Amino acid sequence: MTDSSYPILYSFRRCPYAMRARLAIAAAGICVALREIELRAKPAAMLAVSPKGTVPVLVLANGQVIDESLDIMVWALTRHDPQDWLNVSSRADADRLIAVNDSQFKYWLDRYKYADRYPEHSAEHYREQGELFLADLEQRLQRNGCFCGRRFGLADAAILPFVRQFAAVDAAWFALAPYPALRAALQHFVESELFGKIMAQYPVWQATDPASFSAPNPAGAAYVENLQKSRRHQPEPGPSAIAAGNKTAVATPNRAVGYPGDDRRGHRRHLGVFRAVCHPADSAIDLGLQGLARLAHCPTPTGRANPGRRVHRGIDGTRRKPSRPLT
């Protein structure tokens, strides 16, 4: 079975637009063929379906092309939204906030990050303009805990990758900036297992690569769907997904398997793990249904077993405690 049987996602790991698309796909539990690209050498196959040449680009099995990141998020979450990211009561507010992010804040972010390209003003000036949006986010977090309510949702997933980029321009400044709630929310986000999985590194896709999957396991697909439905209304459901890369991967349901450290948080996060079993040259993102199981006994994207726990570092590069599920 070729990867045309799956949606194909052209992505660039560090692009915040691509990050938000991968976050929604992961949260929805959708299997896609992931094609990592280089922006300086965009593949002809991507340009053929989306001449504007920006990522992300999602090509569905029926040939439909979705090349706007927010549209990809909505497409994925409309199919399956176990964490209610598309919450109806806050959707209008989320859409307005995302629109401000994508227009005004992104405008100032680009000039702050690349101030040498915009000599009309100083980097500090561009930063001050961007801070108007940061101040709004800070107030929202202090009032509700998340950007558009009390639960992590569409706006949080769509905007935090851009806040991360803004903070990284001058990490020392951001560490002392008057946005403690935003700083804490960003730290929680970058430490989350969901973010860790969608930021896994993969080799750049080449048109000559064998881009195929083994036949999916129908029983496994039914198993996952039924388990997701049974947990839809449980508190704090974890994100779920398998986003497969551009080579062979076999998706199989996995019985409850213990992973080191599972019990320390007071619940068994490994229940109902749906794991991608990789061959040595495979690329796959391994995500679980209840929280996200550790990869201590799972193959890594390169096919090697993970010899131990990861070292988690925060946005300022310092060591942090192990990652946790988003709530």
Rank of each mutant, 00 (worst) to 15 (best):
N101K: 09
D102Q: 13
D102H: 11
S103I: 11
Q104Y: 05
Q104N: 01
F105A: 15
F105W: 08
K106A: 11
K106T: 10
K106V: 14
Y107V: 09
W108L: 02
L109T: 01
L109M: 11
R111E: 02
Y112D: 04
Y112T: 07
Y112N: 03
Y112C: 13
Y112R: 00
K113G: 01
K113A: 15
K113Q: 12
A115F: 15
A115M: 02
A115Q: 07
D116W: 10
R117A: 14
R117H: 14
R117I: 00
P119T: 06
P119I: 04
E120I: 05
E120S: 08
H121T: 00
S122G: 13
A123M: 06
A123N: 08
E124T: 12
Y126C: 04
Y126P: 12
R127C: 13
E128P: 04
E128K: 14
G130L: 02
G130R: 01
G130H: 03
L132P: 00
L132W: 10
F133Q: 00
F133R: 03
E138L: 13
E138Q: 11
E138M: 10
Q139S: 15
Q139H: 10
Q139F: 01
Q139R: 15
R140G: 00
R140C: 00
L141A: 11
R143K: 14
N144H: 15
N144R: 04
G145E: 10
G149Y: 08
G149R: 01
R150I: 02
R151K: 14
R151Q: 15
F152L: 08
F152V: 04
F152I: 04
F152M: 07
F152D: 07
G153A: 14
G153F: 07
A155I: 09
D156R: 04
D156L: 07
A158D: 09
A158Q: 10
I159Y: 08
I159P: 10
L160F: 14
L160D: 00
P161R: 05
P161Q: 03
F162M: 04
F162Q: 01
F162G: 05
V163S: 01
V163W: 03
V163G: 05
R164N: 12
R164D: 13
Q165V: 14
Q165S: 14
F166R: 06
A167Y: 08
A167T: 08
A167I: 08
A168P: 00
A168T: 13
V169A: 08
V169I: 15
D170S: 08
D170K: 12
D170I: 06
A172W: 00
W173T: 10
W173R: 06
F174D: 11
F174C: 05
L176F: 06
A177C: 02
A177M: 03
A177I: 04
Y179I: 03
Y179R: 01
P180Q: 08
P180F: 01
A181Q: 12
A181S: 15
A181M: 08
L182A: 07
R183M: 07
R183F: 07
R183P: 02
A184L: 07
